[in-house]
Amino acid sequence: MSVTALPTRAPDYVIHGRGVVPGITVGEALVTRDTISGWGGVNPMAGKVIESRHELNGVSFADKILVFPGAKGSSGWSSIFHMTRLAGTAPLALLFNVTTTKAALGAVVLRVPALTDFDRDPLALIATGDLLRVNADEGKVEGWRAPR
């Protein structure tokens, strides 16, 4: 559970999309331009990407809002992310560009808010460390840029 306080100022950007899994959460963004493999690409016990040559190789997505282009690889994608929920290493929310059965089913069994089909490209707008309020019930993401 995120306990991050929201800034009182207006968000720096707002993106609209389609809710994949409903829910509302607040947290820090972790952004990658690389698609993510589940089985063979993620260690669910550690909540980390382990794919060599992946830009997040070795990085933990636990309790982060994962912003990524989409899912790739083995059909074990959903069960690997399902395992992160059991292991307590799950991401807080998922924002992805391309809907696949892997990403959709993974979001469902993660039981975290998830959005896709955005009006603006989240990969172009959101940077790692930004504070996000994800409202999948209303199909909205508000972002506050991290100082950089």
């Binding site: 059909s75 074990g76 959903s78 069960s79 059965t101 892997k102 469902v108």
Partner: peptide, 25 residues
Amino acid sequence: WMESSAVVFCNSVVGGRTNCEGRES
């Protein structure tokens, strides 16, 4: 069906119809 190599065979070679399903589905 699960299993990406079986899914691509099913769709492409015999004209069956499946997405790359997961364990839960």
